[in-house]
């Protein structure tokens, strides 16, 4: 555990909590892509199956359980509790275009051809693209509430901090996880355009982020 990794995990947790509280308090999931949230729930489910097979630390186990619970709770709020506020017409990204290539790639490029390994690889690849339906939705409607942009900011920051964590681990312990690093770099690139808009529009102005 290093400072980048810990801060990264905390930003990830903060992002998920921000989204959950935003929906819970406003009783509305307007502007939120339910598809991205289902993909994240799928990411956690397929990655954290090792909760049943290996114990790493109390921290690791607790964080995994918290992420899983919050991911499913968020999906529940969007699709069941506050379903009437869900903008399904704007959330029109075709997730099969992500799921099929990601599933195919996880069979082809993995560390071992074993069920848990393939599912772990699938989760890594899927996480790198899971935010695309949300970014697509913002592009399509041309705006996002500031609280939604704060959620995306913390999620992007988590990714950037994990990159720093891998650089640190490579130099201090010789640790290098090729699949995670390549996917992580790809994932972080998706946030660059958003980061630019966040700093130039949301932080400088106020309220909503509108696209030019």
């Amino acid at each position: 555990m290093n400072i980048f990794r810990l801060l990264g995990d905390m930003c990830h947790l903060v992002a998920i909590i921000i989204l959950f509280l935003k929906i819970w308090r406003s009783k509305s999931c307007a502007g939120i892509s339910g598809k991205s949230q289902v993909l994240f729930a799928l990411v956690f489910t397929t990655r954290y199956l090792d909760l049943f097979t290996s114990f790493i630390s109390v921290y690791n186990t607790v964080m995994k359980v918290v992420f899983l619970v919050l991911a499913y709770a968020t999906v529940y709020l969007i699709y069941l509790r506050f379903r009437s506020t869900y903008n399904s017409e704007s959330d029109s990204f075709r997730v099969e275009f992500l799921l099929v290539p990601v599933a195919g790639l996880s069979f082809l490029e993995n560390y071992a051809f074993a069920p848990l390994e393939i599912l772990w690889t699938f989760s890594i690849y899927l996480e790198s693209v899971a935010i695309l339906p949300q970014l697509f939705m913002i592009t399509k409607t041309g705006e996002a509430e500031s609280i939604t942009t704060h959620y995306l900011f913390f999620l992007g920051l988590y990714r950037a901090l994990y990159l720093a964590n891998w650089v640190w681990r490579y130099h201090t312990e010789g640790f290098f996880d090729q699949i995670a690093v390549v996917s992580g770099v790809v994932q972080t690139i998706f946030y660059c355009d958003f980061f630019y808009l966040y700093f130039t529009k949301v932080l400088r102005g106020s309220g909503k982020m509108t696209l030019p």
Binding site: R5, D9, H12, D50, S54, I56, S57, N60, M63, K64, F67, Y111, A112, E117, W120, Y162, N165, D177, A180
Partner: peptide, 10 residues
């Protein structure tokens, strides 16, 4: 036989 490391990251 590849010996896989435990995945300690989240």
């Amino acid at each position: 036989q590849i010996i896989l490391k435990k995945k300690d990251e989240l």
